[in-house]
């Protein structure tokens, strides 16, 4: 088991090295950093001095190692567009994205898991079929269209909820939160729903198929044959075993939520990291793009690692396989 974890760790480090190499190449070779940083009237000598100062004349390996060092210590450099330190820009935007993502994930799991179980057990009921039709639509309708229609109904027609920005926030140290004001919560509802609906349909479909599979296994048939009451078979034996993949679901959804937060933040003008990344693409702000790439890759790698290790701890079958390998 220990060797398995060690091997996964080494793998993760390799992935991060590969990603940072891409980020470095992006930063170093896409456009000329010096030309972007100085104005047109700067003399060639001054440019050359700056180049020397920034270490752009060193060997590529030296530059890459230095880039890695900067990434590890959180020294991300400056944005081409705003000239602000990128570390600050990202720290300032992070709470907005994390809070939005957290609420969306909560909606997805709190509604998706019970709905999945329900539709798996009552596969012929009217309500179950209605839920299934709704999820079919949920999978096919693009996130931004969902957002626009929510805005149209709840924001424009009914006028119940705010449709852009974070509303009133409270500062706790450097962290700004939506959770402490009513206006903050109201502003959060529509974006979180938009982000959560697609993930919800995914959760529901996965839980449903998992639960259906488990209900057909021999040990469940045997439990029913033993005369254990249905309630216990369903909610103790079957549910417990179909919950294992939910860990994977949560892991996968983190990824989906980060990716689609870009779209949601754009629809609702939510001042998070996704909007920052989108702006960096629009204005070709390479340093911000490469830092975002590294941070996102890190988040993905860490989540995948945690999911794999949790699997190992929870599911004895995986543990046996890992030990055998």
């Amino acid at each position: 088991m220990f060797t398995y974890i060690a091997r996964r760790l080494v793998q993760s480090v390799f992935v991060m090295l590969a990603v940072s190499l891409i980020a470095f190449a992006l930063f170093r070779y896409v456009g000329d950093p010096v030309a972007v940083m100085v104005g047109q009237e700067t003399s060639i000598e001054d440019q050359e001095r700056l180049r020397e100062q920034l270490g752009l004349n060193d060997a590529v390996i030296t530059q890459y190692v230095r880039f890695l060092g900067q990434m590890v210590t959180g020294d991300f450099g400056f944005s081409y567009r705003t000239r602000a330190p990128i570390a600050e820009m990202i720290l300032e935007r992070m709470p907005a994205t994390l809070e939005l993502g957290f609420v969306a994930l909560f909606i997805s799991l709190a509604v998706g898991i019970p709905a999945g179980i329900y539709t798996a057990l009552r596969s012929d009921g009217v309500l179950a079929n209605a839920i299934l039709v709704v999820t079919l639509i949920g999978v096919s309708v693009p996130t931004f269209v969902i957002g626009i229609f929510l805005i149209y109904f709840f924001g424009v027609q009914l006028g119940w909820l705010p449709t852009f920005g974070r509303g009133d926030t409270v500062d706790i140290g450097w962290w700004t939160t939506n959770f402490l004001t009513i206006d903050g919560w109201r502003s959060l509802i529509l974006p979180a729903l938009t982000l959560g609906i697609y993930q919800l349909t995914l959760t529901m479909r996965l839980v449903r198929s998992e639960m259906q599979d488990v209900m057909h296994t021999d040990f469940i048939k045997f439990a029913i044959a033993r005369g254990i009451n249905y309630r216990s078979v369903r909610y103790r034996h079957a549910l417990k075993n179909s919950m294992i993949p939910v860990i994977t679901i949560i892991g996968l959804q983190f990824g989906g939520i980060i990716a689609f937060s870009i779209v949601t933040e754009s629809v609702f003008q939510w001042p998070g990291m996704g909007l920052l990344f989108l702006d960096s693409i629009r204005y070709v702000d390479i340093p911000v793009m490469s830092v975002y790439l590294v941070i996102i890759a890190l988040v993905f790698v860490v989540i995948n690692l945690i999911v794999d290790i949790l699997y190992l701890l929870i599911d004895p079958r995986v543990r046996l396989k890992a030990e055998a390998a």
Binding site: A259, F260, L278, I281, M289
Partner: peptide, 22 residues
């Protein structure tokens, strides 16, 4: 495997962004 763990929309945005820079 690595690419599969990234959602398609993120990959597309990144490639698009890089192309805009190049």
């Amino acid at each position: 495997d690595v690419q599969l763990s990234l959602p398609a929309i993120l990959t597309a945005l990144l490639v698009d962004g890089i192309a805009r820079g190049i």
